[in-house]
């Protein structure tokens, strides 16, 4: 399949089941809600080293938030329920509780209820109080700027992590430019996050390593500087490859984001340096979710 001179490989992105939740952070101003959310979702690019994958989903209008203040919604993904709970509590405690004027709410009504403020409340040292409003329990924790309001629980749902797109470009500049534009469009899709810095990864990995201690190592087949000395996936004109990783609440959400990404890459076209679009997989043996690029574009 070739669109606007860009070849779409007959391959698929291989993704994994994860557990996820959404939280809503509000504050007196949009900037302070953003500061808190940015901190809470920081250092959360990959479950391998960070314990979870998280990012800001979108900026919320005051009319969309529970307390009518400016807010931000964030999605957090982890490999299991326990690790999600641990990451959520740690991050809420260190990044939202600490952030001036912030309040923290559940962004998912259904699902399995997991603690959000349920344990954070003990920071109140006995001065914390709860309010049950419309069948939802909120904790009011006295803090130095007033009170930190946090919903007791949030909803944990099944989700998918590891959807991805590889853009193979004529130059590093072309690859980065294409990714920036694709990320901008993909971030408009609800229920998905692109957890890496700026939404883009330059160090895609393969399973295994020559070093026994490592479970993953550089994806040499896609490293342009190794074209002549390894079993490469790259044709001679490819000088740079970058990846966009997508985590989403459902398969449909990831498909939508991938389609938007591919469409953006193709609209940039081969003339502007985007030569091929591919995807990362492990031969279909590890992840149950397979996103075939050509099927997505049909």
């Amino acid at each position: 399949m070739i669109i606007n001179g860009v070849t779409i490989d007959e391959t698929f992105a291989e993704a994994f089941p994860m557990k996820a939740t959404r939280v809503i952070i509000t504050a007196q101003t949009a900037q302070w809600a953003y500061n808190s959310a940015k901190s809470m979702t920081g250092f959360a690019t990959s479950v391998i080293g960070c314990g979870c994958e998280a990012d800001i989903e979108r900026i919320l209008d005051p009319s969309e938030t529970p307390d009518g203040r400016p807010g931000v919604s964030a999605l957090i993904f982890a490999m299991g329920g326990k690790s999600l709970m641990k990451q959520l509590e740690t991050r809420a405690g260190q990044s939202v509780l600490t952030s001036p004027t912030s309040a923290l709410f559940s962004g998912i009504d259904g699902g399995k209820r997991i603690p959000l403020g349920k344990n954070l409340r003990y920071f109140g040292d006995g001065f914390q109080t709860s309010k049950l409003i419309d069948d939802k329990r909120y904790w009011r924790i006295p803090v130095m700027d007033g009170e930190f309001l946090v919903e007791e629980t949030t909803g944990q749902v099944n989700a998918i992590g590891g959807g991805n797109l590889l853009v193979l470009a004529k130059s590093e500049v072309d690859a980065l430019n294409a990714c920036e534009k694709a990320v901008e469009e993909m971030r408009k899709i609800p229920n998905v996050i692109l957890p890496f810095p700026g939404g883009v990864v330059r160090s895609g990995s393969k399973v295994g390593s020559k070093y026994k201690a490592l479970g993953a190592s550089t994806n040499d087949a896609f490293c342009p500087t190794l074209k002549g000395i390894t079993k490469t996936e790259l044709s001679p004109e490819i000088e740079s490859v970058m990846e966009i990783v997508i985590d989403g609440l459902t398969e449909e959400d990831i498909k939508k984001a991938m389609r938007v990404g591919i469409e953006t890459f193709c609209s940039i076209g081969a003339y502007n340096g985007v030569k091929r679009i591919s995807a990362g997989n492990y031969g279909g043996k590890l992840g149950p979710h397979h996103f075939h690029l050509r099927e997505i574009m049909e």
Partner: peptide, 13 residues
């Protein structure tokens, strides 16, 4: 005197 964050939620209910 304080501005309490839970009051808008309460009035909303």
């Amino acid at each position: 005197s304080h501005t309490l964050a839970f009051l808008p939620l309460l009035f909303n209910s």
